[in-house]
Amino acid sequence: MNPHLLLRVVSKFLIPLIALYAFYVQFHGDFGPGGGFQAGVILAASIILYALIFGLKEAKRAVPPSFVRILMTIGVLVYGGTGVVTWLLGGEFLNYGVLNHHDPAHGQHWGILAIELGVLITVASVMVAIFYAFGSRQPDLSDEDW
């Protein structure tokens, strides 16, 4: 009998909701409180909760470390790439107005969406990577010291 049965059942129900909430925060960030930073941390929190309840091994099977390592870079590249695209379209670096020829405000919307996506990817993957790094380290004290 698993001593953490209740915890497992509840978190199995909660983890998808937390991840979903992270995406709500991400894409509703233009209208209410929220944005890439918060969403990234919440998304990472859902993975960390999974690792805490079901074990680091399972979490690494679900979200492989190599994947996390690549995503860390991709997030920064998405952000910087948005800047380069606006550059190529004739505007300044990170001036999103040029993304849409008809209405600069729409271009601003798209630009903010793109860079928030970059922030989300970077923050979430860096937090997960940091947790993996600490969690995989073998403790040199036994549990009896608690």
Binding site: G35, F37, V41, I130
Partner: peptide
């Protein structure tokens, strides 16, 4: 402050 908080946790790590 929003960005400072997230950078703060990264440096704490």
């Amino acid at each position: 402050i929003l960005t400072a908080i997230v950078v703060g946790v990264a440096t704490l790590a």
